[in-house]
């Protein structure tokens, strides 16, 4: 269970949001809305622990995420704007490396299989720098297929993806929520995420902070 308590974030001179509180239960998806610059990315990065909030805190199962440290990040898969893949490594290497860092190494065959599932058949052993934006994104998203973490935080996961990939990703997210996982995501695309508990949070100038 994720609790966000009276969270406040300041970027530069601007206070993005203040007094933001909500709770996310297992099996719930939180869809963040808001115009550009309303603080969606900042909120997500703050929940991850990448940004230190200027007020309030984030609790995981009732304990402060900041104090939990690695115990919390082990429960979390974050996909941000940046893909987090190395241009000079190929898809297989990138994926296996990520899994080793996440503490769950996978075999070469397994990585091969997963990349095939995300639609990179025939591109598995090309260095990421020759892949298209959409293909790089797919390498990144392949992590979700391997992720055991209950909490997924996805910042604009659908950008650069084609229709088929968007649909595939939606089904993965839906499955994760169905299995009792939690998802926080932003997207400007119209996405139909029907199953599971979908909740909406709107950030903006007059954000009162309530879900």
């Amino acid at each position: 269970m994720l609790d966000v308590v009276e969270l406040e974030c300041v970027r530069g001179d601007r206070r993005l949001f203040t007094g933001l509180s909500f709770t996310l239960q297992l099996g719930e998806l939180l869809h963040l809305h808001g115009h550009n610059g309303s603080g969606k990315t900042t909120l997500m990065r703050t929940i991850c622990g990448l940004i230190r909030p200027s007020g309030g805190e984030v609790l995981w199962n009732g304990e402060s995420c900041r104090k939990l440290g690695e115990e919390f990040t082990a429960e979390l898969t974050y996909i941000g704007h940046r893909n987090g893949i190395k241009e000079d490594l190929n898809g297989i290497e990138n994926l296996r490396l990520h899994c080793r860092l996440a503490g769950a190494p996978i075999t070469r065959e397994h990585a091969w299989e997963v990349l095939e599932r995300v639609g990179l058949r025939g591109h598995e052993d090309l260095p990421a720098r020759v892949l298209s934006q959409g293909q790089k994104r797919r390498v990144t998203l392949a992590r979700l297929l391997l992720s055991e973490a209950p909490l997924w935080i996805l910042d604009e996961p659908f950008t650069a993806l084609d229709m088929a990939a968007v649909e595939f990703l939606q089904s993965i997210i839906a499955q994760h929520v169905e299995r009792g996982g939690m998802v926080i995501l932003t997207t400007h695309q119209q996405v139909s995420l029907t199953r599971g508990q979908v909740r909406q949070l709107r950030l903006g100038w007059k954000a009162d902070g309530n879900v």
Binding site: V5, E6, S54, G55, G56
Partner: peptide, 10 residues
Amino acid sequence: SARSISWFRF
């Protein structure tokens, strides 16, 4: 308490 701390800070 969280409220009073942030009040103090600012």
